[in-house]
Simulated scan of single mutants.
Amino acid sequence: MKLPIRNKKIIPRIIRKATFISIVILMIFILVASNEISQHKLARTAQPLNGCLSNDLLACTDTSKETILEPFIPNPELNEQQRFLSAIARKLPVPQTGTYEYIMLRAYGAVFVNPNVGIKLPPKYIFANEQETQEFQATLTMGHVNGAKDCYLQKPASDALNKARSLQKIPLKSGYGSGDCTRTFNTNLRFWHKYANNQVLAKVKQGKETKILGVVAPPGTSQHLWGLAIDLRVGSKEQRKALNQNGWFQTVGNDVPHWTYVGLSEENLPLFGFKKQLVRDITYWITPL
């Protein structure tokens, strides 16, 4: 059957148009694939931190952002403080020495080296009020602590804790309550006023008072606000071993019931700069600042 002359002209145009579209799609696919490969190589080979190998630790800046594809390991040639701060600088600016933020980083900064990709860290070291705290907590993926009433932590932290508690019976400090787990800003403030006042806070900010930090955290600075700390009643080596094997450690000196989800194995804590401190037969892993 012979095709009309009009159809004979249209069909080649359709074929040419389809061929052109196919070529364009192929080119786009090649460009996208090439870009993904380049980004992957860049993420693997780019230096994550600029200036961290120099003497100026405050020059450490995060240049890798979300392109980090492999677990971060500090340069073992750096000293303890440099290794710790290099891990911090990947996520937050390192505050100036002597500032209130630096003092809080020294006391409670263990959480900021947590390598677990499922953990979300706050965008700042100190929250100013309840609104800032709630806005951050609303972005978290929370998990329930088994056998506890109204006790929630960030899910990787609760999963690790539940695993430890499946190995050993480890009760909460209060036995049940949310005050042991993730807290509101107002709860943090209430605890502060129970043990201290504004005059003490002023001394803390000036670096003149530090002992209180092992008793209670100043408003807006508690690790409990991030959903990465819990108060427990621990009295045996077996309980401590179960917690340590699942990334939980005591990181706030003299705060016996306080446990922090660091997400590292005990053997890797020194690599990240943590210093081992033994106080009344209790091992604390404190920051090297």
Rank of each mutant, 00 (worst) to 15 (best):
I212P: 11
A128L: 03
K91C: 09
T67R: 13
F20S: 15
L172Y: 00
A164G: 07
F84Y: 12
V252H: 14
Y125I: 03
T99A: 05
A202N: 04
T221H: 00
L189Q: 08
Q82E: 08
L228A: 10
A128R: 06
I11P: 06
N188D: 01
F249E: 00
H224V: 06
G51R: 07
K17G: 09
I68M: 13
L289C: 14
K203V: 05
A33I: 12
T283E: 05
R280S: 14
E101S: 11
I230S: 08
N268P: 03
G207K: 00
L201M: 06
K124M: 02
C151E: 09
Q154E: 04
E266F: 13
E36V: 03
H258C: 04
K163C: 11
V234W: 00
E135H: 12
P219A: 01
G177Y: 08
N55D: 10
I11R: 01
Q137M: 06
E36L: 08
G227S: 06
E77S: 15
N7L: 08
Y125F: 15
V117Q: 15
K149W: 13
P93N: 02
A33L: 14
P156A: 10
C60G: 11
I37K: 10
Q245G: 10
S166K: 09
L243W: 14
E267H: 09
I15N: 01
K17H: 12
T251D: 13
T97A: 12
V215R: 04
I170F: 10
Q39N: 11
I37H: 11
H40P: 04
K169V: 07
Q81L: 12
K163H: 14
R280Q: 15
V252D: 12
F185K: 06
I68N: 13
P218Y: 06
T67P: 13
F136K: 00
I73L: 07
F112R: 04
I5V: 05
R44P: 00
T210W: 02
D255H: 15
R280Y: 13
N79H: 14
T19Q: 07
F84S: 02
L167G: 01
K173F: 14
I230K: 09
S86Y: 04
L57H: 11
L161R: 04
K237I: 05
V24G: 03
Q82T: 09
G273I: 01
